[in-house]
Simulated assay, not measured.
Amino acid sequence: MSSTPVTVRRIALVAPVLLLLYGILRFADGLDGDRGNGPLWTIGHLAFFVGMVLFGWLMLALRGMVPQPGRLAAIATVTGLAGVLCFLWVIAGDLSDGFREAAPLPAALEFVGPMLFPVGMLTLFGLLVAARRLPVWTPLLFGAAITAITVNLNLLPFAALAVLAALSPLRRLTQPRPGLTAARN
């Protein structure tokens, strides 16, 4: 899959912002002591759903940025996308009792499945760090954010900001270098 630099930059911004929106709406929804099945819950979960779709798209773009992507990049991408699909399945079940009852996520995938997403993402980040295309703090910050969410879901807004910061080098990575355009003409 080939993504334009502008698309990658936008996804690297919008996906974590949607995660942040979900975290904020989730927090606001719980202020009355009851979380779920209201407009904040629904809007937050829709933002989370779209954000995860964008993270999947970003993962495909990251694989394309790995110089000489081999089996490890392919395995990381497939693993991460499987995690994204598990997240989408869980979110769809949260949004629709009918979906959850008709197509429950297998018990073995309830926790392990979504964790495949960060495993794939961190592996792709590692390959890009090894290729000197991303700074070493990108996977470290992303990993810390995922750990925070795993420890306490209420840390989601802070974790989303950490993911936003972790993805910030992608905005520079995909921008054309000023001197290259002039040198080609």
Rank of each mutant, 00 (worst) to 15 (best):
C86G: 05
D94V: 08
F99R: 09
A107P: 01
M65F: 01
G98M: 09
R100I: 03
A92Q: 11
L109Y: 10
A82K: 01
I75K: 01
I75N: 00
V84P: 00
R71Y: 04
A82L: 15
V84I: 15
E110P: 02
A73T: 03
R71N: 07
A107S: 13
P67E: 06
L105Q: 13
A107F: 12
L81P: 02
A108R: 08
L81E: 12
F111Q: 15
W89H: 14
G83R: 06
D94C: 06
A92S: 13
F111Y: 15
A73C: 01
S96N: 10
F99I: 12
P69T: 04
F111H: 12
V84L: 02
L88K: 05
E110V: 14
Q68P: 00
T77H: 01
T79Y: 09
G98L: 12
F111K: 13
A107R: 13
R71A: 12
G80I: 06
D94K: 15
E101M: 09
G93S: 08
D97E: 12
L105K: 07
D97G: 14
I91H: 00
P106G: 06
V90N: 13
I75P: 00
F87G: 01
S96E: 06
P67D: 09
P67V: 08
G93Q: 07
T77Y: 09
A102I: 05
E110L: 13
I91P: 02
P67Y: 11
L109A: 12
I75H: 01
E101D: 12
C86E: 06
L88G: 00
P67R: 09
A73Q: 00
F99D: 01
L72F: 07
R71C: 02
A82V: 11
M65E: 14
V66T: 03
V90L: 15
V84E: 02
I75Q: 00
A102H: 07
D97F: 13
W89M: 05
T79H: 05
D94I: 09
Q68A: 15
E101G: 00
T77P: 04
A108N: 03
A74L: 13
A73R: 00
G80E: 10
C86S: 15
V78D: 03
V66D: 01
E101I: 04
I75Y: 08
P106I: 09
L105M: 15
T79E: 07
G98H: 13
P69M: 04
G93N: 09
L95E: 10
V84H: 04
G70Q: 03
D94A: 13
M65Q: 14
D97W: 10
Q68S: 15
V90W: 14
R100L: 11
Q68I: 00
